[in-house]
Amino acid sequence: MDVSLFDFVLPQERIALRPAEPRDAARMLVMEGGGELRDASVRDLPDLLRAGDCLVFNDTRVIPAQLEGTRGEARIGATLHKRIDLRRWQAFVRNAKRLRAGDRIDFGAGVTAIAEERDDEGGFTLCFEGDEPVELLLERAGRMPLPPYIAGKRAADERDKADYQTMFAQKDGAVAAPTAALHFTPGLVAALEQAGIGTEQVTLHVGAGTFLPVKAEDTADHKMHAEWGTLSAEVAERLNAVRARGGRVIAVGTTSLRVLESAADDAGLLHGWTGETRIFITPGYRFRAIDGLMTNFHLPRSTLFMLVSALMGLERMQATYAHAIAQYYRFYSYGDASLLIP
């Protein structure tokens, strides 16, 4: 498909630079079936879903994956985006022309890494030196990797260490937050449970490429980034039982959705699954494992806007986003939410 079909004009002032306070006070735009759009709040979620439904969250934890260092007199910036093994990460590198294979980068706080090899996109594989776990090194020297549309307007600060982490975050490895789940609070989860709505968790370590616009002119020419995820056999069995009883599986965020769709067979049954996924969902895709999606508002020409267009229809999503812009919804990672149920 022509990528320009997924373009739209977003005023810069609609980009949220901080989350709503409290988190569940964010607005939520509801599109269900062929009905009209409804303006609601995240706090309304227990009333918008049905007893027997189940929300699926991503329990990945964002690591402080953005580093600033030096190689001699040259300043080098690195954003880790894919783990290779215990000590090695692939990284996007700023000022990469000043870096050669074998160079040592000093990131301060006693943290150093060797640039091993350049990749096809101009980044490098970095091997962190020493015996300490890389996670501890990043806690000392790294910063939260805010998306460029926020980082370009303000620097990351202490608030982001909490703001850019969901209440479900348990497993280190993401370099971008599963942002739909940022809206949830313990009080909201308790209200959902009281309403008979279940919750389950999967893992997808979100990569830095998730939110980038597609540069190809046709979707067929886009190379999707790989992300590592897992779905336990026990969770798969419980989710299959939800649908067998007539309940709906609602993915919280496109990251949870990508795990579920990667783990489903052609009949829509989920199975235990672990591995890398490059699933690229565009209009025409047949959804197998989910009955709805709660997600934030996405970038123009992005794979995520293509995904929601596949779920609800491109024309309807363009109309939905036009409504959101006109009604001053807040966009992107720290912005408001939408509830999309085909």
Results as ranks from 00 to 15, higher is better:
1 M>W: 11
1 M>A: 15
15 I>N: 10
16 A>E: 02
18 R>L: 12
23 R>S: 10
23 R>M: 10
29 L>D: 04
33 G>S: 04
33 G>P: 02
34 G>L: 11
41 S>P: 00
45 L>H: 09
49 L>R: 05
55 L>N: 04
60 T>A: 08
62 V>M: 05
63 I>A: 07
64 P>V: 06
65 A>G: 15
67 L>G: 05
80 L>F: 03
80 L>R: 04
83 R>Q: 14
85 D>N: 14
85 D>I: 11
95 N>R: 15
103 D>K: 00
103 D>L: 03
105 I>E: 00
109 A>T: 08
112 T>K: 01
114 I>K: 12
114 I>Q: 09
122 G>C: 07
124 F>Y: 11
130 G>R: 03
138 L>G: 02
140 R>G: 08
141 A>L: 09
142 G>A: 09
142 G>S: 10
152 G>L: 07
157 D>N: 14
165 Q>L: 09
175 V>D: 07
180 A>D: 10
186 P>H: 12
189 V>L: 15
191 A>I: 09
191 A>W: 08
192 L>D: 03
200 E>A: 15
202 V>Q: 10
204 L>R: 07
209 G>W: 03
212 L>R: 15
215 K>H: 13
224 M>V: 13
236 A>I: 07
245 R>M: 10
247 G>R: 04
250 I>T: 02
251 A>Q: 10
251 A>M: 09
254 T>Q: 05
268 G>W: 08
269 L>K: 13
270 L>R: 00
277 T>E: 04
281 I>D: 06
285 Y>M: 06
289 A>S: 08
289 A>P: 03
291 D>W: 05
293 L>Y: 11
309 S>A: 13
309 S>D: 05
312 M>C: 15
314 L>Q: 14
315 E>C: 03
317 M>S: 09
319 A>M: 02
320 T>Y: 01
324 A>F: 07
333 S>Q: 07
334 Y>T: 08
335 G>Y: 07
341 I>W: 08
